[in-house]
Computed example of a mutant assay.
Amino acid sequence: MKNADTTSAVIKVTDDTFQDFVVSSSFSKPVLVDFWAQWCPPCHMLSPVLDEIAAELSDTLTVAKIDVDENQVTAQRYGILAMPTLSVFRNGEVISQVVGARPKRRLLVDLSALL
């Protein structure tokens, strides 16, 4: 489940690939999506945390990120107004969403309740 733009265990998705890599694949295991922007300092602080989580939970969770400035259709579809926004998809639906950067420990606690 990797694509050519993957630089870590985190999958980079676009408007064109969101349906396949996030919505459809969330039927087999949950997908955590990081809606981020290049100009967003908290997004950059969160990135290495998500890399670690993606590697540690690869058996039970897929982690993806989408640049909202380059992929406005998807951002609008899911009502993303602030970055970073972390959404967990399961069975094609958003089951959890938080806005803002979180420490790794807190993210893991939040995710453990969903996995």
Rank of each mutant, 00 (worst) to 15 (best):
M1N: 08
K2P: 15
K2N: 13
N3L: 05
A4P: 12
A4Q: 13
A4I: 12
D5T: 12
D5L: 13
D5M: 12
D5I: 03
T6F: 12
T7Q: 06
S8E: 04
A9D: 10
A9G: 10
A9Y: 13
V10Q: 00
V10R: 02
I11R: 03
I11S: 04
V13H: 00
T14L: 03
D16T: 12
D16L: 08
D16F: 15
D16H: 11
T17R: 00
T17S: 07
T17K: 02
F18Q: 05
Q19C: 01
Q19G: 03
Q19D: 07
D20C: 00
D20I: 02
F21C: 05
V22K: 00
V23K: 03
S24T: 13
S24Y: 01
S25P: 11
S25C: 00
S25M: 00
S26I: 05
F27E: 00
F27I: 01
F27W: 08
F27A: 00
S28A: 08
S28N: 11
K29A: 02
P30K: 01
V31T: 14
L32P: 10
L32T: 07
D34V: 08
W36L: 01
A37H: 10
W39C: 06
C43K: 05
H44E: 07
H44M: 12
M45P: 14
L46E: 03
L46I: 01
S47F: 15
S47I: 06
P48Q: 02
P48I: 07
P48W: 04
V49Q: 01
L50K: 03
L50R: 05
D51Q: 09
D51L: 02
E52C: 04
I53G: 05
A54Y: 11
A55I: 11
A55F: 14
E56F: 09
L57I: 03
L57F: 14
S58L: 02
D59R: 06
D59K: 09
D59P: 15
T60F: 09
T60S: 11
T60A: 03
T60C: 06
T60N: 13
T62C: 10
T62V: 14
T62I: 14
V63L: 05
A64C: 02
K65L: 00
I66R: 05
I66N: 07
I66H: 02
D67G: 06
D67R: 01
D67Y: 10
E70Y: 13
E70V: 07
N71D: 06
N71Q: 13
N71I: 09
Q72K: 06
T74R: 04
T74I: 14
A75I: 10
R77Y: 11
Y78T: 07
G79W: 11
I80K: 09
L81Q: 15
L81W: 12
P84H: 05
P84K: 00
P84C: 03
T85K: 08
T85C: 07
T85R: 01
L86Y: 12
L86I: 09
L86N: 06
S87N: 09
S87Y: 08
S87D: 08
V88W: 09
V88S: 04
F89G: 02
R90K: 15
N91L: 03
G92D: 02
G92V: 04
G92A: 06
E93V: 02
I95K: 06
I95D: 05
S96W: 15
Q97K: 06
V98A: 10
G100P: 15
G100T: 11
A101R: 11
R102K: 15
R102L: 14
P103G: 06
P103T: 02
K104I: 10
R105V: 15
R106I: 15
L108V: 13
A113F: 15
L114W: 07
L115A: 09
